Amino acid sequence: MDSNRTNTTNVTALLNGSTIEGPNWTFTPSFTLFIQLSAFVNNGAMVVVFARNAALITPFTVYLFNLFASNFIVSIFFYSIELINELYSAWWLGYAMCTMFQYTSWVLTGSMCIAHGTIALNRLWAVSFPVSYRRYHKKRFAVAVIATLWISLHIIVIPGLVLDAVWYRPPMETNGCNINTDAPQAWLWFAQLVIMDTPVVIVVAVYPIICYKTIQRNRARVRPAGATGTKMASRRQRAPSTVSPSVRSDLEASVSVRAGGEKQIEHRMLCCRLPGVRRGNGHGFLALTLMTSTVLLCYSPASVYFTLYICFNIDVPGMFSKVMILYELAAVLDPIWFMLSLSSLRAAFRRTFIPCH
């Protein structure tokens, strides 16, 4: 993904001792600037919402906050260096900044991918094992999971960055700053597969399982309309004769509404939210659907492209710019989708930014 982008800048100007050309505002840096500003505003607003609404923080929304915070940090650090890299014809930021560029491209953008995978696994646990989920999944548990993932991410990335900086990095005067790093190939394969590819596979694979579990739970929870009607009819037959005709007609009307409306209720539960979660609770099935669509549309093409490039040395012509455009959109879409699909997040947003609403 972003973290695997190879710097192909022209360093002829440096070799000739002349001034580096730039800034060159083509479509690519212009789009990167748009993404940076949009991601900064959208995710920054979500971070403020969480900071000002303590009641919004639940064991589940801790994972959402981690996603928004990752997107926000990426918009500040990674995209700032990436924008400069795209504007100028050669790398002129120095050796230390190149290492920083590699760090932000692997650790920070990798945290975005891992955040999506963590949310998907959390929803799978909630649907598959609801009893253990309610018993063990607390705020401290969620915070511990996120902290463990961040620590593990650094454990994976730091050795490769050190190897690149100390032994394997070629002169930047002739090769520029390669944010793939020139560390051993085995490390590149491992980092790409674990940090970038595995979360995408998890999100895409988990979603149909959650759909299946959701349908099963709703079918088990909703009684057949015919059985309900029969039970209520037998109750009406045993009802005292003292019940007035008007009350009896009201009872019959309520029975018919229940018998005809249960499948509609099941449909709404399936399409709008996870089973067993009250409306407005913030654990939306729709949110998971939109997140999966974003991962499938934005992350999957880049994951396939860079896996082919790093592991098999296959560079599909003309695909780099296209997959990068899709990949960068994810940081902008995440807060929009979650706010539109989760009523609790929308309410907190209105309280924070529209207090007189």
Rank of each mutant, 00 (worst) to 15 (best):
A115W: 12
C98P: 03
W92T: 12
S105L: 01
Y103T: 04
T109H: 05
L108C: 13
N85C: 00
G110H: 05
V47W: 08
P59N: 09
C113F: 11
L124W: 05
T109S: 15
T104L: 02
N66E: 01
C113I: 01
F50V: 00
A90K: 11
G110K: 11
L124P: 03
S89G: 09
R123N: 03
V49N: 00
S70D: 03
I81L: 15
S75L: 12
M100A: 10
N122E: 13
Y95T: 09
E86S: 10
L108P: 00
T99E: 13
L124F: 15
V107Y: 06
Y95A: 07
R52T: 15
M97C: 14
I76Q: 09
R52Q: 12
V48Y: 02
M100P: 00
L67V: 04
R52D: 02
L93V: 11
V41D: 07
T104K: 04
M97H: 14
M46H: 02
N85S: 10
V107W: 09
R52E: 12
L67I: 00
L83H: 10
F60N: 10
Y95Q: 03
H116T: 08
I114Q: 08
I57K: 11
P59L: 06
L64Q: 10
L64S: 06
V41A: 07
Y63H: 06
M97K: 12
A69V: 07
N71S: 13
A54W: 13
L93G: 15
V49S: 08
L56P: 04
